[in-house]
């Protein structure tokens, strides 16, 4: 027990809380200052959490096997960059990206076909809705048996996981354009392709991006979990499951950090793209 660490961490926590309280109450007339403050508050909150974690770990002498302090995890990250990079390449750059592109792409194409044929829309959509709620991760062992240990089996899991959210959301999005707009297109004597490209696909974009966002997290989960069922000796899921067995918890946290970073960055990238594509949407107009 080391009271100074606990005391310092708690003081820092209270101080940041007070600063945040003050900042959150104030309204700034300058818009850039306001956005800056809005970004700063959660960062300060996150920093306070890290300091609290570090302080409590050191203060209560928590054994590193249970929960290593952030400084130790950071040290591990900087020391084993090459392993982390190899794992990242195997899991993210190969399995996740390939599966994500194929799954989202085929879901999108399937949605356009389903939308064209009312019979399929009535029949396939309820089934797709049901399948989207099922624990598809369970398909992982089967995919590993079919496609082998290397990354294609992981990509296959990602494809099935991302297909249905994309299908369901795109079909919903294609139905989202209003009656008046469709009537207007009709008066222009537009054909199916023109209606699709100029009205219905742009109107469906918020739904499609919603699916892309959901899928970005699902893809990472699918690839990592699939690696629990058998992999070559590289990959994030492989590293996590073996290092847990060897009680190298700091290495596991390093992998988690990489996964979190990759997940957040891809989510952020899609959010930025969404902003650029659907700039007309009410939620982005101020």
């Amino acid at each position: 027990m080391n009271l100074t660490w606990i005391f310092a961490a708690l003081t820092f926590w209270i101080a940041t809380w007070a600063i945040n309280q003050m900042l959150a109450r104030q309204q700034f007339s300058d818009k850039t200052v306001q956005t800056g403050i809005d970004v700063f508050i959660p960062i300060l909150f996150g920093a306070a959490l890290l300091v609290l974690w570090e302080g409590l770990c050191r203060g209560f002498n928590v054994p590193p096997v249970l929960l290593p302090p952030p400084s130790m995890i950071w040290e591990r990250i900087t020391n084993s960059l090459d392993i982390l990079w190899a794992d990242f390449q195997q899991t993210y750059l190969k399995a996740v990206l390939a599966g994500y592109v194929m799954g989202c792409g085929s879901g999108f194409i399937a949605a356009i076909i389903v939308d064209r044929i009312p019979f399929l829309r009535k029949g396939l959509l309820p089934v797709g809705n049901l399948v989207a709620a099922l624990p598809i991760v369970g398909m992982a062992p089967i995919m590993v048996m079919w496609f082998g240990f290397d990354w294609p089996s992981k990509a296959a899991v990602v494809v099935i996981m991302t297909f249905f959210p994309m299908l369901v959301n795109t079909v919903a999005g294609l139905a989202a354009s209003g009656h008046i707009e469709r009537d207007l297109m009709h008066t222009y004597a537009s054909n199916y392709m023109q209606r699709l490209m100029k009205l219905r696909l742009p109107a469906a974009m918020p739904f499609i991006f919603n699916a892309l966002k959901i899928n970005s997290t699902l893809a990472l989960i699918g690839a990592i979990v699939a690696e629990f069922f058998g992999t070559p000796i590289v990959g994030m899921g492989f590293r996590i499951s073996t290092e847990v067995g060897r009680m190298n918890v700091d290495m596991v946290w390093a992998e988690i950090f990489v996964a979190a970073l990759a997940g957040s960055l891809s989510y952020g990238l899609i959010a930025l793209l969404e902003r650029a594509v659907t700039f007309w949407h009410p939620s982005y107009r101020s």
Partner: peptide, 8 residues
């Protein structure tokens, strides 16, 4: 939620 908890 962008952290793959299932991995953890």
């Amino acid at each position: 939620q962008t952290i793959p908890i299932l991995a953890i």
